[in-house]
């Protein structure tokens, strides 16, 4: 068995356990906490722990992208917005009225989790030859410029559209007078 196979079929390292624990722990905090700022910081923790998991799987490129885009840009954007708008912690208002809603959400999520956990055993064990399983940055570049050329360009267009959209949305109120 080579190293790449060992990373999938072998026992998890201590580092993986720690990263997994923190990923789940912070995800739980996002769900439980009523304070938006705690949620944002916990989201950051989850994203960072996931990046650590990618690193421990040997997938350095995706891990670095995860930190750069998710933890470095998206999570910071969330923190920025929560701080800028100064969102206050929200009390659980009208709890009896919302109880069916909570129960139903819990039921759906619980069933989903149960179903998904059943599928883990269906995943085949890694085979002996896993030499080509982890892509390097160069291989990604080759894929994106040959096989996935069209999706890559489309994604570029999407980001361009998002930039324009964000600028228009952010500056829109300057153009016309607001009535209210």
């Amino acid at each position: 068995m080579n190293q790449a196979t060992d990373l999938i079929a072998g026992a998890p390292t201590v580092f993986m356990w720690v990263a997994s624990f923190f990923a789940i722990f912070f995800a739980l905090i996002v769900f439980v906490s009523s304070n938006p700022i705690s949620c944002a910081v916990a989201l950051m923790g989850t994203l960072f722990s996931t990046a650590a998991l990618y690193f421990s799987l040997g997938n350095f490129f995706v891990g670095a992208i995860q930190i750069l885009v998710y933890a470095g840009a998206i999570a910071v954007l969330f923190v920025f917005i929560v701080m800028l708008l100064d969102l206050k912690p929200q009390k659980l208002k009208n709890l009896p009225g919302r109880l069916p809603h909570f129960l139903f959400s819990g039921l759906v999520a619980g069933l989903l989790a149960l179903f998904l956990f059943r599928t883990i055993d269906l995943v085949p064990k890694a085979t002996e030859d896993s030499s080509a399983s982890i892509l390097s940055a160069t291989q990604y570049a080759q894929y994106f410029l040959s096989q996935y050329q069209v999706p890559f360009q489309a994604a570029g267009l999407l980001v361009f559209g998002a930039i324009l959209g964000a600028i228009v949305l952010a500056r829109g109120h300057l153009g016309k007078k607001e009535h209210s």
Binding site: F60, I65, L68, V76, V79
Partner: peptide, 22 residues
């Protein structure tokens, strides 16, 4: 000795904003 060292450096650098903001 990381194969994506340059990207990693850039990524970790972007975490600095977070401390200032917090």
């Amino acid at each position: 000795n990381m194969s994506v060292g340059l990207l990693f450096l850039l990524a970790i650098n972007s975490m600095h904003v977070f401390s200032v903001l917090t």
